[in-house]
């Protein structure tokens, strides 16, 4: 077998492993974090600090029977959870964790992540529709309209950044911000005075795209029971869960690369993978922190936010940056 094929396989296995490990331990981190915010300990019985809790949860989910509700569309019902997890793992392939650690550096890396993210919303749609549950259908329609409306400002913001850097390669994007935090994209420069706003828009959009609170309308438990995965149990539910956390990691990685200088150190010294991990976990901690602070938005409030605030501002920013890039 040729070396390139072997490399690809190893890369994919590492990507799956990283995604699964993150998904498992982010659940633990989320529960511990929520516990601390609410002044309770969180899971602390299984193992030291409850660190074995994800294993117990995993064992429970795997050994449970997979129930398929009567009248459900079996094929789509089975496919949907896989479709939720697979694109997330695929996106890991192109994310550069450091100068050298990347499975496959692609010239269109940014595009690839968005292309596969669009598959994720299809999985929600299929899950809700195929389980033949009214709550599921309502939730899936909500989640998809949400996904569509937040992809627009997100892509416009990405275009702004790509325009400044002149590349869609995630590696190039990160390298262009090397050498201290004053080179990062989040810091406003002459050509892009509105970058902090862009960052905020991108951050909000990635919260919405990953269906995180306060935008978790697809699984609004007080209205729609559990939303699109109401009928899922055992590993079907597990895959949705893991997919969600894998998506969070991808969202955080993307923010880190686009705005926070990738694996670069804030002071321009020793760029390494640790900086990258530190940044993405700080961002994920912020995601968790936000989730346990705010109530949920309404569906129309969410769409209003996207179409009336985020899209106009990001479009304005795009035009402004384009104009200023010509000037300077």
């Amino acid at each position: 077998m040729s070396l390139t094929v072997l490399n690809a396989i190893i890369a994919v296995v590492i990507a799956i492993g990283f995604a699964a490990l993150n998904a498992a331990y982010l659940v633990w981190a989320e529960r511990r974090g929520a516990g601390r915010i609410q002044r309770r300990p969180g899971p602390n019985v299984n193992g030291p600090l409850g660190l074995l809790q994800p294993l117990a949860d995993g064992a429970k989910l795997m050994t449970k029977q997979l129930m398929i509700p009567g009248g459900a569309d079996k094929a789509l019902f089975m496919v949907a959870p896989v479709l939720a997890m697979a694109p997330a793992i695929m996106s890991f392939v192109t994310i550069p964790f450091s100068d050298v650690i990347v499975a496959k550096s692609m010239d269109v890396g940014v595009l690839m992540i968005f292309a596969f993210a669009s598959l994720g919303s299809m999985s929600i749609l299929f899950a809700g529709w195929s389980s033949r549950n009214k709550y599921g259908v309502m939730a899936s329609v909500r989640a998809v309209s949400q996904a569509i409306s937040y992809e627009v400002p997100m892509l416009i913001t990405v275009i702004t950044i790509v325009m400044m850097t002149g590349s869609m390669n995630l590696h190039d994007l990160a390298v262009s911000q090397a050498g201290g935090f004053w080179h990062w994209n989040i810091i406003p420069s002459l050509a892009s005075p509105l970058m902090p706003v862009s960052f905020l828009i991108f951050f909000i959009c990635s919260l919405a795209e990953t269906n995180r609170a306060p935008f978790d309308l697809g699984e609004a438990e007080s209205e729609l029971v559990a939303g699109f995965h109401t009928e899922y149990g055992s590993m079907g539910f597990g895959l949705f869960f893991m997919g969600e956390y894998a998506n969070i990691v991808i969202g955080a990685s993307l923010i880190t690369i686009l705005f926070l200088g990738g694996w670069g150190c804030p002071f321009g010294l020793f760029p390494s993978v640790f900086w990258f991990l530190l940044k993405i976990y700080l961002l994920i901690a912020t995601f968790i922190w936000i989730r346990w602070t705010f109530p949920r938005t309404t569906i129309y409030g969410l769409l209003n936010l996207s179409w009336k605030i985020l899209i106009p501002i990001s479009l304005f920013n795009l035009l402004l940056t384009a104009g200023l890039l010509k000037v300077f």
Binding site: I37, R39, A213, A220, S222, W292, T293, P295, R296
Partner: peptide
Amino acid sequence: FVMDLGGFTPLMYAIQ
């Protein structure tokens, strides 16, 4: 009520 609206943490503070 705030939990109905999707925010879980205020419930914990209120119970406390």
